[in-house]
Structure formats: C-alpha cells, structure tokens
Amino acid sequence: TFELKGKVGKVVKIAEDHYLVESEGDKWIAYSDEKLSLGDRVMVVDVDGLKLKVKRIP
C-alpha cells in the first residue's frame, strides 16, 4: 500500500472545513488541529480513510 504517513506536502487550497494538500504529485483532503495558510509546508501525521491529518513544519 502507498504509505503517506511522514510525507511532506503543501497546502494548495483552503475550504470551509478542510484543506487541500499536494503531496507526491497528488492532491488530498486534509485537516489539522492548527490553522494553516496557503503555501504552508505540512507533514502527514495520520491517515483516516482518504483524509490526511497534517501538521505545519518549518
């Protein structure tokens, strides 16, 4: 299986209740415990079905 946990991506869209993150050339629906901005670099900390939980990284 394709393992996304630990992968790095970038926030490419902000929606009302989720983010769109591009990682490894694909776009994924993501959510975070912190507020993210367009262009933020993020790391995948968990995968919930087809949704990614991400956190901001420097």
Rank of each mutant, 00 (worst) to 15 (best):
L38I: 09
V45L: 09
E22C: 07
G6K: 00
K51Q: 10
V45Y: 06
L4I: 14
E22Q: 05
I29G: 11
L20Y: 13
V42A: 06
S23F: 14
D26L: 12
K35L: 10
E22W: 13
E34I: 05
K53L: 12
V42D: 00
V8W: 03
V54F: 02
G39D: 13
V12Y: 05
I57M: 07
V44I: 14
L38G: 05
L4A: 14
I57A: 11
V44L: 02
E24S: 04
D46K: 02
K27C: 14
Y31N: 13
E3W: 02
E16M: 08
V45T: 10
T1C: 15
L36P: 02
K53H: 14
E16F: 10
D40W: 05
A30G: 06
H18P: 00
E34H: 06
M43A: 06
P58F: 06
R56K: 12
R41D: 14
T1S: 15
S32D: 05
V21C: 06
Y31T: 13
K7M: 14
S23I: 15
D40S: 07
K7I: 04
D40Q: 08
V21K: 01
G39S: 09
D46C: 03
K5V: 15
V21D: 01
E34P: 03
E3I: 01
L20N: 06
G49Y: 11
L20T: 10
D40Y: 05
V11M: 03
D48H: 06
D17T: 11
I57G: 04
K51T: 14
L50D: 09
E22H: 10
K13Q: 07
G9K: 00
G39K: 06
K27E: 10
I14Q: 06
V21I: 09
K27R: 07
E16I: 12
G39R: 06
L50Y: 13
L36G: 00
I57K: 04
K53R: 12
E22I: 07
V54L: 04
E34Q: 05
V54C: 05
Y19F: 06
F2M: 15
L36R: 00
L20V: 08
I57Y: 12
K7G: 04
K51G: 13
G6H: 01
V42E: 00
V45K: 03
F2G: 15
L20R: 06
V8A: 05
K13Y: 10
K53Q: 13
G9Q: 02
I29A: 12
K5F: 15
V8D: 09
D33Y: 07
G39V: 04
K13A: 09
K51W: 13
K13M: 11
E22A: 05
V11R: 00
Y19N: 03
L38E: 13
V21W: 15
L50H: 10
A15D: 09
V42N: 00
A30K: 00
K53F: 13
K53D: 13
R41G: 13
E22V: 07
L36A: 02
S32V: 04
T1M: 15
S32R: 08
G25E: 05
A30Q: 00
K10H: 11
S32T: 07
G49N: 10
G6E: 03
G25Q: 05
L20C: 12
Y31A: 13
K35C: 14
G39W: 12
D17L: 12
D40E: 11
E16T: 09
K35F: 09
G9R: 00
G6I: 00
F2A: 15
K7E: 08
V44H: 01
S32K: 13
V8K: 05
L4C: 15
K55F: 05
L36V: 05
R56M: 11
L52W: 02
G25R: 03
K27W: 07
G49A: 06
E34V: 05
I29T: 09
E3R: 00
D40M: 10
I57V: 10
K53I: 05
E3A: 01
I29P: 10
K55N: 13
K13V: 06
P58W: 04
L52A: 06
V44R: 01
H18W: 10
G6P: 00
D26E: 09
T1L: 14
L50I: 09
P58N: 05
D48C: 14
S23G: 06
E24Q: 04
G9V: 15
D40G: 05
D46P: 01
K5D: 15
D26M: 13
S23H: 05
A15V: 10
K10E: 12
F2S: 15
G25I: 03
V47N: 03
G25N: 05
Y31H: 10
V21S: 02
V11A: 02
I29N: 10
K55G: 05
V21A: 05
K7N: 05
E22F: 13
V12A: 07
I14F: 12
L50P: 09
S37C: 12
V44D: 01
V44P: 01
V8F: 04
R41V: 13
H18N: 07
D48N: 06
P58I: 06
K55Q: 14
G6A: 01
F2E: 15
V12K: 06
K51M: 12
K51Y: 12
G25C: 12
S32Y: 02
A30D: 00
V21E: 00
T1R: 15
E3C: 13
L4Q: 15
E24P: 03
V54E: 00
D40T: 11
E34G: 08
V12T: 09
K10C: 13
S32A: 12
S32W: 02
T1G: 15
Y19S: 09
E34M: 06
S32N: 05
L38T: 07
K13R: 09
K35Y: 07
K53A: 03
R56A: 10
D26Y: 12
S37K: 06
D26H: 12
H18M: 12
G9N: 01
S32E: 01
Y19T: 07
D26Q: 14
K27T: 13
K13P: 00
L50M: 12
F2R: 15
H18C: 13
A30T: 14
K51C: 14
K51I: 14
A30W: 01
S23P: 02
G49D: 11
D26I: 12
L50A: 09
G49V: 08
M43N: 04
A15T: 12
G6W: 02
V47R: 02
V47A: 04
T1I: 15
